[in-house]
Amino acid sequence: MNILITGGAGFIGSNLALGLIKKNYNVTVFDNLSKQIHGDNPYQSPLFLSIRDKVNFIEGDITNRTHLAAALKDQDVIIHYAAETGTGQSMYEIEKYCNVNINGTAILLDLITNNKNFKVKKIIVASSRSIYGEGKYRNINGEILYPDSRKEENLAIGDFNVKCPNTKTNAELMPTDENSRIHPSSIYGITKQNQEQMVLTVGKALNIPAIAFRYQNVYGPGQSLSNPYTGILSIFSTLIKNGKDINVFEDGKESRDFVFIDDVVNATILGVEDKELRWNSYNVGSGIATDVLTVANSLKRLYNSDVAVNVTGNYRLGDIRHNFADLTLIKKDLGFQPAFNFEKGIMLFVNWVNKQEVQVSRLEESLVEMKLKGLYK
């Protein structure tokens, strides 16, 4: 079977490509080798080198119809990863995110729909936990809530908790399932929602099975150590390696669901190989919430570093407080079970980072940019 991965030279895509190759699939990778991900010399980036000579590589842009048409020839399965990523950056590079993520997906689907020479049998799209916004909560009466974005007036006085809309008391966090309200709080989240809906809608119209995987915070060996817009494990690791203190936003108790890259690859391959499912969306995560302060202190300990971990009270508009996945559906339908807990995964990640060249931290530069836009306080 021939499988095309758009954005397949990125962190998740390259790992998935290698996983599919091990199962004897013919893999084509279509990627523009973005400087933000691959650096100034993309053909020497570790991610590209990991797949070079192992896949059929086509360099091209997802918004270029000619490039994409050439890549689609003779493909059985399309795994659509090509996208701009990063919630913070999306809030001021709005046109770029919408053009790449939404328009790029539209071009892909338009080609599949209108070219009868393409015989695509399945489409998988990378969705995101960001489409849920603040996710699922309940009040003291046990009633389910899907709160809107936190109010800046509360954030400004250091009250970072999610509130019940009527009583203004703190809401209780719950795992977010696939039937939860979709209400993204960033442009990135909006574009991922659009990607998911477009793929599932067109897939159903064409009778092509389609699956959207709502990935949580994916981490592991191979992720970019220089991109300041995605991956706090990478951002914190690069700060530590440069001997710089870690400044944790809010009160450090904000949490995410960190899912190890091997689990993401496994879940996605289960979706590729499934013969029954049609037009479904699934959470892919660890099912456990880990707070940011725990992440920072764990990395400091594992690197045996003496940098300071400072809780700053600063915050970014558009950031969510919490979100972790309910995995009930993907376990039932695909038999997915995470194999890596956070302790095991972070150890493997740290061991890999220790073997890498130290990258220049660009976090301060990105924060200055966000502050100038009024998005970082």
Rank of each mutant, 00 (worst) to 15 (best):
N2V: 05
N2D: 10
L4Q: 03
G13W: 11
S14E: 06
L16V: 14
K22A: 14
V27Y: 07
F30Q: 02
K35P: 04
K35L: 06
H38D: 02
P42K: 07
P46W: 10
F48S: 01
K54L: 11
V55M: 02
F57Q: 10
G60Y: 12
T63D: 02
N64M: 02
A69F: 12
K73R: 15
K73P: 10
Q75R: 03
G86I: 07
Q89N: 14
Y92W: 13
C98E: 14
N99F: 11
I102H: 13
G104V: 01
N114S: 07
K116F: 09
N117W: 09
Y132P: 02
G133S: 06
G133E: 09
G135T: 01
Y137C: 00
G142V: 00
G142L: 01
L145G: 00
P147G: 03
L155A: 08
A156N: 10
D159H: 13
K163Q: 03
P175M: 00
S180Q: 00
P184W: 09
T191I: 04
Q195L: 05
T201Q: 11
G203W: 10
A205V: 10
L206Q: 05
N207M: 12
P209Y: 12
I211G: 08
A212S: 09
F213Q: 07
Y215D: 02
Y215E: 02
P221F: 11
G222N: 08
G222E: 07
I232A: 13
F236M: 14
T238E: 00
K241P: 01
D251I: 00
F258M: 04
F260W: 07
D263V: 04
V265L: 06
N266C: 13
A267R: 01
L270A: 00
D274I: 07
N280M: 15
I288R: 08
L293W: 10
V295L: 10
S298E: 13
R301A: 11
L302D: 05
L302N: 04
T312L: 11
L317I: 15
H322D: 13
D333R: 11
Q337I: 08
K344R: 12
I346F: 10
V353P: 01
E365M: 02
E369P: 06
K373H: 06
Y376I: 05
